[in-house]
Design a protein around this nucleic acid. Structure first.
Lengths: 225, 225
DNA sequence: ACCTGAACACCGTTCAAGT
DNA sequence: ACCTGAACACCGTTCAAGT
């Protein structure tokens, strides 16, 4: 029965990986995620790309959840935060711009983070940074934490809409005529320019500016400047 | 071969639904989603709950994507927005508080929206409202659109973290000792009070206040009040 | 028009077996 | 210690058939 067994590197497997390792699994997993999206990231598909049997993965990874989290962590861990110097506004802006850039470089990551039950520990790093920066600027521990949630939901959400599209495939100008929206046409929306050519960079910077201005207004008055 | 066929209402199927319909499918689907989460929302599982064969669903629903979107739409469509009266701040606050309340009432919805490629048309309703309110307050079409993205990412993201937890199962006090975080302990985070007893309502209101203050500051000076 | 039943190509994962 | 192969309990969906 065991005739020849020329499995390794056969077929579509582009990785002729000599040795299987957790790092290698994560690397190729991220590649699949970037190229073909979350739905393509299956254990069987990944194993095939590595030229290996599905069950071989389980020697380096506990289960699918562990795998997904490891891939997400590999992106988040690679973020380089700018040195925490200067005005607190600049510190926070730099921190969340770095997060955004990292997630945009690997578009599937946000989806992966969103569908994860447990997040990798490294997400606590920007949180700790934000808390340090804001408490030093005079915010209470509580307000600083609230501000972090505000900043992280905005940052990740924005990347999410940018990468997967918002209302993709729906034309607001005709949605009403086709009877799909109940309450009339959407003239403002039609003229908003929100579409495939929307400038997400500018949109992010606008939101960031608003948030930082709002946080400044929430700081105790003596430290507001 | 066709011996008795006592299928309907047998076993665990709690719905003895006389007639299958799109509305009924969506209703029971939302029930499953609320009770057991997105992963339990499969066509086969749903069909069983309806006391019907999986393929019966396909007479009322195009595919899984269509089903998911219909369920999400049923939640979003049910949102009642407060009358657009009073100060623009109050209008926007009311609008997004309504969205938040609706999503919190059906915790799986955010997950469903996040993993949908195409969003239901009804998401354009709060968008149109936001644009109307803000342009009336003096904002440019572009800034109003940016402000909407800011508000919606924050609102949905916040609900997402609230329902699925943020860093659930990770203790920031010990993450470092266990070697899972690279850059030292997280004293600020430990003392932040962010945990299972975190007050998400207050957190949302804080963020909303910041955002509205920030938007106000971005309005042209003559309409800022 | 609506539903069933068998089938297909996928999943994640267990378990016993090989080296 | 690491990998394979067969198997199990699931998926979404097609297709031919029933009423």
């Amino acid at each position: 029965m065991p005739m020849s067994r020329p499995r390794r590197g056969a077929g579509r497997a582009k990785e002729a990986a000599a040795t299987l390792s957790r790092a290698e699994i994560v690397r190729v997993g991220l590649e699949i995620l970037d190229r073909e999206g979350v739905s393509a990231l299956s254990t069987r598909r990944l194993a095939a790309a590595l030229g290996v049997t599905p069950m071989a993965l389980y020697n380096h990874v506990r289960d699918k959840t562990d795998l997904s989290r490891a891939i997400a962590a590999s992106v988040i861990d690679a973020i380089v935060y700018p040195a925490p110097k200067g005005h607190w506004r600049a510190q926070l802006a730099g921190c969340f711009r770095a997060i955004r850039a990292a997630c945009l470089a690997h578009p599937g990551t946000v989806r992966l983070i969103e569908s994860a039950d447990d997040l990798p520990e490294s997400v606590f790093l920007p949180m700790e940074r934000t808390l340090l920066t804001l408490t030093a600027a005079g915010a209470s521990q509580q307000d600083a934490t609230r501000a972090f949630y505000l900043l992280i939901t905005f940052t990740l959400g924005q990347v999410g809409y940018q990468t997967r599209g918002w209302g993709k495939g729906v034309d607001p100008a005709t949605a009403f005529e086709r009877g799909r929206i109940a309450s009339g046409p959407l003239p403002r929306l039609v003229r908003s320019g929100a579409g495939s050519e929307w400038d997400w960079d500018a949109s992010f910077e606008f939101g960031l500016k608003c948030i930082l201005a709002g946080i400044a207004a929430a700081l105790p008055s003596r430290s507001r400047k």
